[in-house]
C-alpha cells in the first residue's frame, strides 16, 4: 500500500473545460520525500489538494481513474477522515493560521477530533518541539515571521498525527533563512519520524538536495519521475518547463560545454566538489606520470 497512489487520474474542476490532471500516474511510497516540480497550472497543486480529499469534496469536479491515499479512495472518504492521514500546508502562511494563539492553532485539529484535553496539550508540546517552536504557545500567529508561521502550520498538521505531510509551495513567501529552516524541519521529520513528505515546488534547488524522488509535471501530466540526479540534470529542459534549475546544475552544464572531456552532471554542491576534485586530481596525476 502506497501513501499516494494515482493511476491514470484525470480531474477537471467544475465549470472548467480543461483537465487540470490529464492522466497522472504517480506512486509515493511510505517514508519517501517526493517533490513535484512544474510551472503554475501544471497540475501540482491539484495533486496536493487531492491528497486529503479537498479535491473532489471541497473543490468539486469530474474525477476519473484511480486516486488512493493509504489505500483509501479519495472519492468515498471525507476530508475530515483523510485529514487524520494527511496534513496539508498551503503556500500563503497568513491565511491558514486563523486562531488567536499558536497553542490554539496547533490544538485546533485534535480539538475537532474530540481528543481529550490532556492529550491535546501533550500533542501541542510534541508538535511545537518537532518544528522548533516550543515556548511560542501564547504568541499570536500574526506576530511571527513567515518561516515561523509555516512551521506553526506544520505543527498544526502534525498534531493530528498524520502519516504524510503535503506542502503546496510552502517556501513561496519565505526569505532564504525561512526556507532553510522549513526544509530542515521536513528533513528531520522524514529521517527521524518516518514521515512521508510530498512537496510541490517551482524551484528545484531544495528538491535536488532533500528529495528521494522528483516528478516533473507539464500540462496535467507527469513527464518524468525518478531520482533527482536523473531528472534534474538538464537545466535547459527544466527552464523550458517553467522550473528554476538547481544553481550547481547550471555550473555543471557550463563546464560540460566549455571544458573538454568534462562529462559532469551534478545537482548538489557536495557532488560537484567530489566530481571536480576527482577530475582535476586525475588530470594532474596524468600529467605528472
Amino acid at each position: 500500500m502506497q501513501a499516494l497512489h494515482l493511476r491514470d487520474a484525470r480531474f477537471r474542476y467544475k465549470g472548467s473545460t480543461a483537465w487540470a490532471l490529464d492522466g497522472v500516474s504517480l506512486d509515493v511510497e511510505k517514508g519517501e520525500f517526493v517533490t513535484i516540480l512544474g510551472a503554475n497550472g501544471s497540475g501540482k497543486s491539484t495533486i496536493c489538494l487531492m491528497s486529503n480529499g479537498l479535491v473532489p469534496h471541497a473543490l468539486p469536479g469530474d474525477l476519473e481513474g484511480t486516486a488512493e491515499v493509504f489505500g483509501l479512495d479519495v472519492r468515498s472518504h471525507p476530508v475530515t477522515e483523510l485529514a487524520t492521514k494527511v496534513g496539508i500546508i498551503f503556500q500563503e502562511p497568513e491565511s491558514q493560521l486563523f486562531c488567536m494563539s499558536v497553542e490554539e492553532e496547533v490544538a485546533f485539529g485534535p480539538e475537532n477530533l474530540a481528543v481529550p484535553s490532556d492529550e491535546i496539550r501533550e500533542r501541542v508540546e510534541w508538535a511545537l518541539e518537532l518544528v522548533g517552536m516550543e515556548g511560542y504557545n501564547d504568541r499570536s500567529p500574526f506576530s511571527l515571521s513567515g518561516g515561523q508561521k509555516q512551521r506553526v502550520a506544520i505543527a498544526a498538521a502534525l498534531s493530528m498525527r498524520p502519516d504524510m505531510l503535503v506542502l503546496d509551495e510552502p517556501a513561496y513567501a519565505l526569505d532564504p533563512v525561512g526556507r532553510v529552516e522549513l526544509y530542515q524541519v521536513l528533513k528531520g521529520l522524514k529521517e527521524h519520524h518516518g514521515m512521508t513528505v510530498l512537496l510541490a515546488e517551482c524551484d528545484s534547488e531544495e528538491a535536488a538536495k532533500y528529495s528521494d524522488k522528483v516528478a516533473l509535471m507539464k500540462d496535467g501530466r507527469v513527464i518524468s519521475y525518478g531520482k533527482p540526479r536523473d531528472v534534474l540534470g538538464d537545466p535547459e529542459r527544466l527552464r523550458a518547463l517553467g522550473v528554476t534549475p538547481p544553481q550547481v546544475s547550471e555550473v555543471s552544464a557550463l563546464l560540460k560545454e566549455r571544458l573538454e572531456g568534462a562529462d559532469f552532471s551534478f545537482i548538489s554542491v557536495d557532488e560537484a566538489e567530489r566530481a571536480i576534485n576527482e577530475k582535476f586530481t586525475n588530470r594532474k596525476r596524468g600529467r605528472e606520470q
Partner: peptide, 27 residues
C-alpha cells in the same frame, strides 16, 4: 476573498466539523 478561500480549505484540512462533541485544549 482569496484569503477566505484558502481559509476554508485550511479549516477543512484540520477536520473542522468532524464531530459534534468537540473538545478544548484548555477548559
Amino acid at each position: 476573498l482569496k484569503m477566505a478561500d484558502t481559509l476554508s480549505l485550511a479549516l477543512q484540512s484540520r477536520a473542522y466539523g468532524a464531530r459534534a462533541d468537540r473538545t478544548y485544549v484548555r477548559e
